[in-house]
Design a protein around this nucleic acid. Structure first.
Length: 482
RNA sequence: GGCGCUAUCGUCUAACGGUUAGGACAGAGCCCUCUCAAGGCUUAAAUACGGGUUCGAUUCCCGUUAGCGCUACCA
């Protein structure tokens, strides 16, 4: 029975690296008919925040993948303490009475000792006496010393792993305030929840040796491990909130208008490959293709910039996924972005615009710059020189617009009707179609780059088109010399 | 400092020990075209360095260098 878990600790907003870990766990579970478990690892009472928990909830909700079971570590403290006591009772751990230093320990990592012999060798009676006298202590795992032995396991991604016992310090299981450490709580819960595969970031690769010792001490069969390469910033440093800001938050992707399908696709391509040349993959395809054989071992850089906090490849994949949506689906997702700029925007209008802009936007946010003239009552100011077509002058522009006003007053206001009418008008004037269309486009949209003309005019409607052309004519007459 | 992991175009990546080292994004150019896109075509761009093993190393081994991780009563 395959059981996997995603275990975030609520000490910051949902990081894209965490999101990727969730995705890989989910994919592995779904691929193999397993169970996906969400476990909030909130044993660090000092650093947990409600905002962080909410950010994780929001992020996972946006991802939309879901889970089958859900737990909170802070509700399972008895289980953790019981395991610590069990290990202590077996003599595999001991009490360390070293006082907790304010400021966080000795800070001299370069000469860090693996253990303090004073307490490691303290007799059981003496230890019990001091504990019952109320002296504070931390429970440490007693790593066997001088045996020449090592701990080993086979990682599903990194292969054979081995570490000498003598290189592992006597790590803490239970803090002096009675709270379990991450190592203890994690192992106790993984054992209790019968987790079969632990899929997590490579930053835990060396912690795994400790975890194996805990599982062994508790007398439980350890799960399988699969570690994932880490995500790095463009300069090769670890992704961090402090140094990279919003670029590490999943919310940034949502806010910019990356759709979940594209985000999941992009995350999978960071550190995993289907091994053929396919890159645009649906969730269903990812589910069918995912395996640890495709996960590679070197860290991947998320190539965001100061201008755009998203990797250009994520944006490109998003553009592909946008085109895969139906018009109705895309329009519905575009609506909230349109309403950020035009609160009155209606779905009906967006449905008309969507086919015109779907191949011209890469992010949902793109509707704000690509579709402004559809929503704005009055066009943003533009230079009258914009109205003048290539190889033409103001006089030509004026003639074109006057002809257009006449033609459009009676033309059939459909794509094909406008096509025929405006090409006919160009012929009447004896000019190229392009020269005819350009002034009309600028008059209608307020700029030279816009969606194809006929569809655009159709959506704008006769009234708006005539009004804007009239304004352009006035503009030409007052701002240029003809 | 100790221990561990990793190293292919700028970035993400592919390549049973035998390939002109492939694809994608980003870049450049051309075509198409009512502008912009989209699409098509073309182009530039990589095996960190040094030793082995082998008829033959991107691939296996060792070393160097670099990056990352762990080395907390954080996770």
């Amino acid at each position: 029975m395959i059981r996997v878990r995603f275990a975030p600790s609520p000490t910051g907003y949902l990081h894209i690296g965490s999101a990727r870990t969730f995705i890989f766990n989910w994919l592995f579970a779904r691929r193999n008919g397993g169970t996906m478990i969400l476990r909030i690892d909130d044993t660090d009472l000092e650093r947990n925040t409600e905002e962080s928990l909410q950010s994780i909830r929001d992020g996972l909700k946006w991802l939309g993948l879901g889970w089958d079971e859900r737990y909170r570590q802070s509700e399972r403290l008895d289980l953790h303490r019981a395991m610590a006591q069990d290990i202590l009772a077996k003599g595999l751990a001991y009490r360390d009475f070293t006082p907790l230093l304010s400021g966080g320990g000795t800070m001299n990592a370069s000469v860090a000792e693996k253990f303090n012999p004073d307490y490691r060798q303290l007799g059981t009676e003496e230890s019990d006496r001091r504990a019952s006298a109320g002296e504070a202590f931390v429970i440490r795992y007693r790593v066997p010393r001088g045996t020449g032995k090592s701990v080993r396991f086979t990682d599903l991604v990194y292969g054979e792993q081995e570490k000498a016992l003598d290189d592992i310090e006597d790590f803490a299981l239970l803090r002096s305030n009675g709270a379990p450490t991450y190592h203890l709580a994690s192992c106790a819960d993984d054992a209790d929840l019968r987790i079969s595969h632990i899929i997590r970031g490579q930053d835990h690769l060396t912690n795994t040796f400790k975890h194996l010792l805990v599982f062994r001490a508790a007398g439980v069969e350890p799960p399988q491990f699969a570690h994932l390469p880490l995500l790095l910033a463009p300069d090769g440093s670890k992704l961090s909130k402090r140094n990279h800001g919003i670029a590490v938050s999943i919310k940034t992707y949502e806010d910019k208008g990356i759709i979940r399908e594209a985000f999941i696709n992009f995350m999978c391509l960071l550190g995993w490959s289907p091994k053929d040349d396919r890159e645009v993959l649906s969730l269903k395809e990812l589910e069918e293709l995912f395996s640890f054989k495709g996960v590679n071992r070197s860290n991947a850089i998320v190539n965001f910039t100061a201008q755009l906090p998203l990797d250009a490849k994520a944006v490109a994949l998003n553009a592909e996924h946008l085109r895969l949506l139906t018009v109705e689906d895309l329009a519905a997702r575009l609506l909230p972005f349109a309403r950020q700029d035009w609160p009155e925007a209606r779905l009906e209008k967006i449905l008309q615009i969507t086919p015109l802009i779907r191949e011209r936007i890469k992010l949902l946010q793109g509707i704000q710059s690509a579709g402004d003239f559809f929503f704005a009552a009055e066009l943003a100011p533009y230079e009258s020189s914009e109205l003048i077509p290539k190889k033409g002058d103001a006089a030509l522009a004026l003639r074109v617009l006057q002809q257009a006003r006449e033609t459009l007053a009676t033309a059939d206001f459909t794509h094909d009707g406008l096509d025929a009418a405006l090409r006919g008008a160009a012929e009447t004037l004896g000019i190229k179609a392009g020269q005819m269309f350009e002034p009309i486009r600028v008059a209608a949209c307020g700029r030279k780059t816009a969606p194809p003309l006929f569809g655009t005019l159709e959506v704008l409607g006769r009234e708006t088109c005539l009004k804007r052309i009239g304004q352009a004519i006035t503009k030409l007459q007052t701002e240029t010399t003809i």
